[in-house]
């Protein structure tokens, strides 16, 4: 050993599990691949176009804003890629490219980097981008549907111009046909109108199982969220089966699976402790169903997660683990 050898000196622990932000984000990207495949199957090149545009513009905006703010580059942590994918998944296939770029700008620059970047953003960036687009370009966001796979009561297909939840919102008569087995199966597989990444519950659930297996997320938020929606929808359905869609319809329609598995579980903007996660999930579920049932929008997943994002700092203060060696009632 040479005399000049220097040793690194730092605080313990000196070993590490090997977990990294890049690794977590990579797992999330992998988990979103089934939904991408489903999107391509159902919407063709438009799905590819929107995903590529959103991912590329998110990464470029992240790179530029870090550069302009003279901060270290973070694009390699892949979080901008995820934001881009999530944003694209939240857009209808006919969505114009330039608007998607605007959405990416809002998501990355305004909702994320202006707050300090990954870790400091109070709201899920993709969600903020989507809501901006939703409120600014309502017409484009509501989609321009050319076909409609639903089968109505008389077995006559092709009622154009609505997503399943839009159909539910607009219908005046009996809607029990929406809950027919063949329609539920279409919903589950994704053969319906909707945003490109949200339609296939099957693909999203596969991704969710992967995330659970890789321990990137825990079951608390998705189960609390989806469970609350299921319970709420069941109660409505039991009270009035003709005026309400079935619980299965609610579970597999709209953005619930995408929201519950990929958006509400965003670590930065959801509570850190398990009890807080449960409250967060239940809150998302209640708000989603309230908006779906009584709100003026057909879908409430984005709004409910956004509102619960705002409640996260508060939940983190209230919901803490019970410390070892501390008797009950003492704080």
């Amino acid at each position: 050993m040479s005399e000049e050898q220097f040793y690194s000196v730092s605080s313990s622990p000196h070993v590490h599990s090997g977990a990294s932000i890049h690794g977590i984000m990579r797992d999330v990207v992998i988990a979103m691949i089934p939904a991408f495949i489903a999107a391509v199957i159902f919407f063709g090149l438009d799905a590819v176009r929107l995903t590529v545009v959103c991912v590329a513009s998110c990464v470029i905006f992240e790179y530029l804003s870090r550069r302009i703010m003279k901060r270290n580059q973070t694009i390699s942590d892949l979080s901008a890629v995820i934001t881009g994918m999530l944003l694209a998944y939240n857009l209808p296939p006919s969505f114009p490219t330039w608007m998607a770029i605007v959405g990416s700008f809002v998501a990355i620059v305004i909702a994320k980097q202006l707050f300090g970047g990954l870790g400091y953003n109070p709201f899920n960036p993709a969600l903020a981008g989507r809501l901006f687009l939703f409120l600014s370009f309502a017409f484009a966001m509501s989609g321009n549907w050319t076909d409609w796979n639903y089968i109505n009561a008389d077995n006559i297909a092709a009622i154009t111009g609505a997503t399943p939840l839009g159909m539910l919102q607009e219908s005046t008569g009996s809607i029990s046909f929406l809950s027919s087995n063949s329609n539920i199966l279409n919903l589950f597989l994704g053969r319906v109108n909707g945003c490109i990444g949200e339609v296939s519950s099957l693909a999203l659930i596969l991704g969710g199982i992967y995330l659970l297996w890789r321990k990137v997320i825990t079951w608390h938020i998705p189960v609390a969220y989806i469970g609350t929606v299921a319970v709420f929808a069941t109660i409505l359905y039991v009270i009035d089966p003709t005026g309400n869609a079935s619980p299965l319809f609610h579970l597999f329609s709209g953005g619930l699976m995408l929201g519950a598995i990929f958006m509400a579980t965003d670590m930065v903007t959801s509570p850190t402790d398990k009890s807080g996660m449960l409250v967060f999930g239940i809150g998302c579920g209640l708000l989603t169903m309230i908006i779906r049932k009584w709100g003026s929008y057909p879908e409430g997943v984005s709004f409910s997660i956004f509102i619960m994002n705002a409640a996260t700092p508060l939940l983190n203060r209230v919901c803490k683990p019970k410390m070892f060696g501390l008797k009950k009632g003492k704080a």
Partner: peptide, 11 residues
């Protein structure tokens, strides 16, 4: 080190 992403693994 990077900012906390609130993943909850430490908890």
């Amino acid at each position: 080190s990077a900012p906390c992403i609130s993943c909850g693994r430490c908890i």
